[in-house]
Nucleic acid binder design. Structure first.
Lengths: 267, 267
DNA sequence: GTCCCTAAGTTGTACAGCCAACTTGGGTTT
DNA sequence: AAACCCAAGTTGGCTGTACAACTTAGGGAC
């Protein structure tokens, strides 16, 4: 490298819409550029990536920055990393990871379907013990409970029972009934999701589920319970989502390098 | 710090059995020690961790090493990390993450249950198209197909249909029929799992499932399909596991910082 | 008392360098 | 021909430094 003041030798890839909330740091730009390059087939699946040093020269950044960028790809399972040999491209499919999972609407659009949402009911009442615990509120604290039916291209697919603490619920209450995505609306009000804990198992449909999803009472549904928190670790949402069988599957990549996925005994 | 040659001011925590395969690097030791401290309640849930600089002094390592250690805890959702303020302890429950998930036996023991396994059948035959694709073999390549019934304290809980490429299958074929854990046996032969992709959804029991799990044909089961690879990215195992409802749930932590979890349309 | 601003503390980003551990390929030896 | 060994290349681990971005608490102005 020559001087290293005016950085950037083509990191402004135009591949996909960037997450508006992600800070535009050097290593994120490099990671995004490498993602684009891999998705575009610049390095075929199974090909070996250039050495870290070579990438550092190309992007005119230090090797440490390159390593930060590659760590992101590594965590998503896009590339290997083994001491002694070059990194290898594992998958050339794009992973949207976090944002896609926290928002039903964003996920739906990413697979080319039209998301829909209809709010059935919003009530404010004292939270149940489990809910208060999940939201880290003192028991009996008031919460907002929102029942929504989610559709994919008009077809009912999922029943969402979300619970919010008061400071969030007051916002959600004012959202339009037909709003596509509560999470993007919340972002507009400064409520950001940064972490989520998911529990995935199987639950029988109750009468409400059966009516909304047009299935039989007792039919098995795929259930995802989720607690989302903001950057301070404060719980923002606790939700119980139930999907019709065959409409959705959950995928996880985990590695010895990072990522927490685990089994749990039910209840 | 004074000289920084003879390292280590008490990183030899004796909390839990260490993963024998994880290299004993400095930052892993620090991370393990911090995990132990958190689990032991040294910093109550919600407490603020010491600053990185303070930890660096205490452990007599550089701040960079501390940051590597904290990144591990961050990825597991144990602590927050926000610019400008100290890290906050989020959860004081231990997460075993990878090893626990890849091995049914290890998971079972971690929750205090006695794992059991009975191999029903082992056959060598040409792989089906889906299987060959998952294992990255040319189509029609020979594979080993292993059917096992897994029990928890004697109770049948899961049917495992694993498919291995020949070089692995030859090893598995020689394992005892009642072996608890194939994955630990494979480790003994130098076959290490480092990455896994999981797909979780719901599947109806076929006649074989019904007989083994003592449930009705067509009953809904929680299905986990998993492809595990070694450190070079070579697929080592492709498995279809079906759990009786109510016996297990899958949990994931994901954050904007790392981790890939996503929805997928079924099939 | 309330508001505002500043300063100290803390984490994030980036850079540079050094050595260890490991892989690979090629040449040498047997 | 096969086995062996060595050197070059590459990633992992660790240290040190510097600055930017952000939070928080406390003091001062009003």
């Amino acid at each position: 490298m020559t001087s290293g003041k005016t950085g950037g030798a083509g990191v402004g890839g135009t591949g996909q819409p960037k997450d508006p909330k992600a800070p535009q740091t050097l290593y994120r730009k490099v990671a995004a550029d490498l993602r684009d390059a891999i998705a575009a087939g610049a390095y075929g699946s199974g090909a070996r990536l250039p050495a870290e040093g070579a990438l550092a020269e190309r992007y005119e950044v230090s090797r440490g920055t390159i390593r930060q960028a590659l760590a992101l790809l590594r965590a998503d399972g896009l590339v290997t990393s083994r001491r002694g040999t070059r990194r290898v491209v594992l998958s050339d499919t794009r992973v949207q990871s976090f944002a896609e999972l926290t928002s039903f609407a964003r996920w739906a659009r990413s697979i080319g379907e039209e998301p829909g949402g209809r709010t059935i009911a919003v009530v404010r009442e004292p939270g149940r013990p489990l809910e208060c615990e999940q939201l880290r509120l003192e028991s009996e604290a008031y919460v907002y409970r929102v029942l929504r039916l989610r559709t994919l291209s008009g077809r009912p697919v999922m029943v969402e029972r979300a619970v919010y603490p008061e400071w969030v619920g007051e916002l959600v209450e004012r959202f339009p009934r037909e709003a596509d995505s509560h999470s993007t609306l919340l972002e507009g009000h400064g409520v950001l999701f940064t972490d989520a804990d998911h529990t995935i198992d199987l639950a029988p449909a109750d009468t409400e589920d059966a009516v909304l999803l047009e299935c039989g009472v007792g039919d098995a549904l795929l259930r995802e319970r989720r607690r989302s928190t903001d950057s301070t670790g404060t719980p923002v949402e606790w939700s119980d989502d139930r999907y019709l069988p065959g409409t959705v599957a959950f995928t996880v990549h985990n590695s010895t390098a990072s990522t927490a996925l685990s089994r749990r005994t039910s209840q």
